[in-house]
């Protein structure tokens, strides 16, 4: 599991396709407003792209794409972005996740502040899901030593 795939065709095609999957995933995250998509869906695809490159090139080479412990850290940062948006709204005077109060620090109207609030939350969710999927793959692969 940790080594390169034996088949050169598989290995090369996976390496070529992986960036395109990531771009499509970003598209899906940001178009969650107006078409089917959103944070979790795009995050899963981002995670799948990284895991594909890990499977195709082996864990050592794929370290260049996404480092070893970064998965958990990115997951935490994603949840912080989500939680931070809600908390920021609370600090600015509203309830938790009341995005219209974000209009006090951003130069937009109330309705657009809700739009931007949801976008931040979706980005946070996407980052969190990607981080956790990569972290799950990495940790299960290099689990505890034989006991």
């Amino acid at each position: 599991m940790t080594g390169k795939s034996d088949n050169p065709i598989l290995s090369m095609i996976s390496r070529m396709i992986s960036p395109f999957i990531m771009i499509y995933a970003l598209y899906v995250i940001f178009h969650g407003h107006y078409s089917p998509g959103g944070g979790f869906q795009g995050g899963t695809m981002l995670g799948a792209a990284v895991i594909l490159s890990r499977l195709a090139s082996g864990s050592e080479l794929s370290r260049l794409l996404l480092g070893k412990g970064i998965g958990t850290l990115m997951g935490a940062i994603g949840v912080f972005i989500y939680f931070g948006t809600g908390f920021l709204a609370m600090l600015l005077g509203g309830r938790f996740l009341e995005y219209k109060y974000l209009a006090r620090i951003m130069p937009v109207s109330d309705a657009m502040a809700r739009n931007w609030g949801i976008q931040f939350v979706e980005v946070g969710v996407g980052l969190a899901v990607m981080g956790i999927m990569v972290a799950l793959y990495d940790d299960i692969l290099t689990g505890e030593p034989d006991a």
């Binding site: 999927m133 940790d139 299960i140 689990g143 505890e144 006991a147």
Partner: peptide
């Protein structure tokens, strides 16, 4: 159901970690 799918993914992750520990022991 999006939320339920996420919960399913997390449960599968935890379950496989436990299964791998059982196998190693």
């Amino acid at each position: 159901m999006l939320t339920a799918i996420v919960v399913g993914v997390a449960t599968t992750g935890v379950a496989f970690a436990i299964v791998i520990t059982i196998y190693k022991r």
